[in-house]
């Protein structure tokens, strides 16, 4: 599985189309990643139609059936209010996926813009921004998120803001270092000589070159974001009852932990499957974009 092939990222007069087909061909070879991709597509459909397919309402109290084990009527059993866990876990998909994508998308855009400009222009602006980002980077992700939630108060929206803030430096650094490399490429220098404006160079010539790295990081960040949301909710700092967020379900399950195994198992499995798929997809994308990596990682 070792390709003696040019790295498609290097920005010479590389045709977009061939790059894309190369990428697709390489990606198809990553069988686990393809499987992960299809599982994720399935999860997306679940996220979109969860309220339609869920057999019960997420807040349908049924006090007579509380804390029951899995059965045909309740595939995943019920919780302390007799709500159907299967429906709740199902609907949790929408929350986790949307938080994951929204936060990472915002962080990617902000981070990339910061990275592009600081990397391209350099100088004092670059120095100051990078110092500040270093300082943000000095906080471990979850701890920064906890601190931010302590200011803003618990809640999903605030947890999302916290995640955006700690994701930004990752992208800013990544894009900045790519920009630094590309800035001196023959291609960009040529464009400069032809009198292209800075903005044009940045968005037309440098951004596409940065794109592959960002995509790989994106997939990995989404899984990180989902995990952090769940962790915050687990600590009581993210989603609030009765939101069926997976981390919160796990947190609530702790009270009944010893008598009801099913309550803790299923939401946890949901997190594992989702995070696993994003990680595998991210690995696959990385290898497809940079086949030299194939046998590393």
């Amino acid at each position: 599985m070792f390709f003696k092939k040019k790295n498609p990222m290097v920005t010479e007069e590389n045709d977009m189309d061939t790059r894309w087909s190369d990428f697709l061909r390489n990606f198809k070879k990553q069988k686990t990643a393809v499987v992960a991709f299809f599982v994720l597509v399935l999860l997306f459909f679940i996220a979109i139609f969860c309220y339609k397919i869920a057999p019960y309402g997420i807040n349908e109290y049924n006090y007579a059936e509380k804390l029951q084990g899995p059965s045909m009527a309740h595939l995943f059993g019920t919780d302390e209010f007799g709500r159907d866990l299967f429906s709740r876990v199902l609907c949790g998909t929408r929350i986790s996926l949307s938080i994951g994508f929204i936060t990472v998308t915002i962080a990617t855009v902000i981070g990339s813009v910061i990275g592009l400009f600081t990397g391209y222009y350099g100088g004092i602006l670059d120095g100051i921004t990078m110092r500040i980002l270093d300082a943000v980077y000095a906080f471990p992700g979850l701890i920064l998120a906890i601190a931010i939630v302590a200011i803003l108060g618990p809640g999903l929206a605030n947890a999302a803001i916290a995640i955006v803030i700690f994701c930004i430096p990752t992208y800013a650094r990544l894009v900045r270092s790519c920009t630094l490399q590309l800035k001196n490429s023959v291609y960009v220098r040529a464009a400069k000589c032809l009198g292209a404006s800075d903005l044009r160079i940045l968005f037309k010539h440098i951004l596409p070159g940065v794109f592959p790295d960002v995509i790989v990081q994106y997939s990995l960040s989404v899984s990180g974001s989902i995990m952090t949301t769940a962790s915050l909710s687990f600590l009581g700092m993210g989603a609030m009852s009765p939101t069926p967020e997976w981390g919160l379900l796990l947190s609530n399950s702790r009270t009944y932990f010893y008598s009801c195994w099913h309550y803790a198992v299923f939401p946890g499995l949901a997190i594992v499957i989702t995070v696993l798929c994003f990680n595998l997809l991210g690995d696959g994308l990385r290898m497809a974009l940079d086949p030299k990596l194939n046998d590393r990682a």
Binding site: K66, L67, E80, R254, T255, Y256, F257, Y258, S259
Partner: peptide, 28 residues
């Protein structure tokens, strides 16, 4: 802090008295 742990410790004999229990655990 975890109620389930308090219950488990009481059941395993590592403790003799636990306070602050939810109805389900109390009944059990």
């Amino acid at each position: 802090s975890e109620e389930s742990t308090r219950v488990a410790l009481l059941q395993s004999g590592e403790a003799d008295l636990a306070i602050s229990l939810t109805p389900n655990n109390k009944k059990m």
